[in-house]
Design a protein around this nucleic acid. Structure first.
Lengths: 149, 149
DNA sequence: CCTATTTCAGGGGTACTGACATCG
DNA sequence: CCGATGTCAGTAACCCTGAAATAG
């Protein structure tokens, strides 16, 4: 009737919140990154942060996007080499870089925004808008708990 | 009053379900793996599957736990070298391995069960039991959607 | 001196891909 | 020949650590 019992996940795992979370995240993440083509989620995060808050230093970008500094460096280098953002030295704090979106970057971001939206619908298709909002709310509270204290 | 605005995540990201999911999953996963000491989540998954369904082939284990065959091979080799499970050749299908928990494996699993339970409480502390159940239900539906079709 | 920022080098766990040999 | 299985090598994206140099 139902699925092959040999392929059924063990009860201990199927109800385990942490496992449900990481497994689902893995599937969704794969779907999104595949749909993003030449871009990775880090790229989108950085460009979105720059578009909304304007030019920023890498350290600030990392904190805003929840990324490690090393990964910010790598992603910024990658995007700069593609002409999507520009990295200049802050004249006030010469140790600091100021990263800014270029016009091409803004165009790319607009395209990415649409792709990302489409991919959300794909990834969360089984949930109603209300359920998605509820899920987002629960996850937001969890994320706060893990980043704040 | 609130948090430093320079550290606030961009709106596009803070409400994005896929991002909330992967970010939260990363935090929770780190917390769990650190709490598991010498074990990894794959190890726990395999041992739990064996405890509940009895000795199984590696291919079946992989399907049950949502793991790749390559990763099953590596994890089984690791656990077998620690004496926690035994790998023997299936006499009926000589290409196939039969993996089984040892007595030590069962003891280790009992300990892991408790640790895992403790870690769930840590990771999901801000959610009430009802909310945790709701979250689990939503994630289960999503996971089904990504594994079934 | 101490802190913050940037960068680099590297590792580690997860997910995956391709290849291969083996067996039924 | 085909399909399933196990194994291996290698890749990719992500997360993290440590160290160094620079600047305030």
């Amino acid at each position: 009737m139902t699925a092959d019992p040999t392929e059924t996940p063990p009860r201990r795992l199927s109800g385990l919140p942490s496992r449900l979370l990481t497994q689902t995240a893995a599937h969704v993440h794969r779907l999104v990154t595949h749909g993003l083509g030449d871009f990775r989620t880090h790229h989108y995060a950085l460009m979105a942060a720059l578009a909304e808050a304007g030019p920023s230093s890498q350290a600030v970008l990392g904190r805003r996007c929840g990324m490690d500094r090393s990964d910010v460096t790598a992603a910024v280098t990658e995007l700069a080499s593609r002409g999507l953002l520009r990295r200049t030295v802050d004249p006030a704090h010469r140790r600091r870089n100021i990263v800014a979106l270029t016009a091409e970057g803004e165009n790319a971001l607009r395209e990415l925004d649409q792709r990302v939206q489409r991919l959300q619908d794909e990834a969360f298709a089984p949930l109603t808008p209300t359920e998605r909002a509820h899920l987002a709310e629960l996850l937001t509270r969890l994320l706060d708990h893990h980043t704040r204290p």
